[in-house]
């Protein structure tokens, strides 16, 4: 039997909460939020809209002291969520105030590729915050509507799981899966693919070609421009850090336009592009920005090379 933790250990407390229905969700969230308020901690809640409204209503007047974030907005691309918590942790640490968060990145309705990235995100949260200031993050998982593989996977990505008696250690927790997952090969496209090779002299042509592809498949101009900027940043990374050249592939699926950059370089840090870059930092801004601008970004790297797949939903 796994013992209940009487007192959360200092450091990052990353805890999965499994629920079935609204009442079950509130039964897990309300005591957690109110305990944080009682301790004088700041509470930041990032849930998809239905859960957000549910909790806000249930908190009544107490909701005024809670910061609510729509997970669909701040975490549509799961690779951008760590930056949100990174900022929050820094701000509250600087203010000398404790922080506890609620984050539901893997919510019902997400596509399979998004749920895959949610899993990697959850694993990388531990990497990002395990050695930093103490704070707690509770991650709800909807057992009634998410695939079982996703809810079971949460036991691998969270060192703690929530119970009625308090948090317990997850026996299935497997932090090493972060590196293994980062090194995997993404599923190959099954549709027709346009490919091109770029080198140092081809960056303007690369971004124009990607923009043209995006317009051809009917993306709105705002997304075309974002994709063009992403193409420029990622192709530049290949030229500067990835062996000097790369391959761009473009294809269309039933619900998305996909652009993928591959080069022979290796990204050794799976957190690349996920943490807020410092103002003076020269490198690492391109992938960070791509994560902020694009619908879904999947980065995988090993000795075999680096792949960054950018998906734009149509």
């Amino acid at each position: 039997m796994t013992p209940v933790l009487d007192h959360p250990a200092p450091g990052f407390g990353h805890e999965a909460l499994f629920y079935r229905g609204d009442d079950d969700l509130l039964a897990g969230l309300l005591p957690y939020v109110r305990e944080g308020m009682g301790l004088g901690e700041s509470v930041v809640v990032a849930l998809p809209r239905p859960g957000l409204d549910l909790l806000r209503t249930a908190l009544g007047d107490d909701a005024a002291t809670v910061e609510f974030l729509d997970m669909a907005e701040i975490g549509g691309n799961p690779a951008q969520i760590i930056a949100v918590w990174d900022r929050a942790v820094r701000e509250h640490a600087a203010a000398g105030r404790g922080l506890r968060g609620i984050g539901e990145p893997a919510y019902p309705g997400r596509r399979t590729a998004e749920l895959t990235e949610c899993r990697l995100h959850e694993l990388l949260l531990n990497r990002a915050f395990d050695d930093g200031p103490s704070w707690r993050l509770l991650c709800p998982y909807d057992e009634a509507h998410l695939p079982r593989s996703v809810t079971r996977g949460a036991l691998h990505t969270h060192p703690l799981r929530s119970t009625a008696a308090g948090p317990r250690r997850s026996r299935e927790y497997a932090p090493g899966e972060a590196d293994a997952m980062f090194r995997t090969v993404l599923p190959r496209p099954t549709d027709a693919v346009l490919r091109g090779i770029y080198g140092p002299a081809d960056l303007p042509a690369t971004r124009r070609t990607v923009a043209q592809f995006a317009r051809t498949v009917g993306l709105p101009e705002e997304k075309v421009e974002a994709l063009q900027l992403a193409a420029s940043e990622l192709a530049t990374n290949s030229v500067r850090h990835g062996g000097g050249s790369g391959t761009v592939a473009m294809w269309v699926t039933q619900d998305a336009a996909v652009v993928e950059f591959v080069d022979p370089g290796q990204v050794t840090d799976p957190l690349t592009g996920r943490l807020v870059p410092s103002l003076e930092q020269e490198c690492g801004r391109g992938v960070f920005l791509v994560n902020q601008l694009c619908d879904l970004v999947q980065l995988r790297s090993s000795e075999e090379g680096t792949t960054i797949r950018v998906t734009t939903w149509v």
Partner: peptide, 16 residues
Amino acid sequence: SALLRRMWHSLALDRL
């Protein structure tokens, strides 16, 4: 452009 402004905000260049 709106994209440049968004980039400016995302990269916190206003703090520079």
